[in-house]
Nucleic acid binder design. Sequence first.
DNA 1: CAACTGACGATAG
DNA 2: CCTATCGCCAGTT
Length: 106
Amino acid sequence: MPSEQTRRILDTLRAVPAGRVASYGQIALIAGHPLGAGGARDVVRILASMSEQENLPWWRIVRRDGAIALSPGNGAELQRTLLLREGVVFDASGKVAEAYFWTIYE
DNA sequence: CAACTGACGATAG
DNA sequence: CCTATCGCCAGTT
């Protein structure tokens, strides 16, 4: 069973609108986690093991610099495809433009 | 129950 | 600009 904090993260993840992306640290911050870099790890672990069973939009989570976090061959290609399908655009370096990052105000 | 595992991120060099 | 390190700790095996 997920802890209270974990559920908060799960909830925050589900709040990310389609066509938008969010960083691990951002999710942690919104979920009220001890932040910086440590909190992001929680998001990572949670997504890494529970994304499938929890019905989470794991593909909308990217690194703070906008790059896909997954290793190539481990789902990175799939993630990129899913995001493109939602209207997210990648720049020449294979990163998502900052403009696509989610903000809690909308 | 102990060990293992990381989809990160900030900072320093 | 890039690489290397360190911190962080729940969830899975």
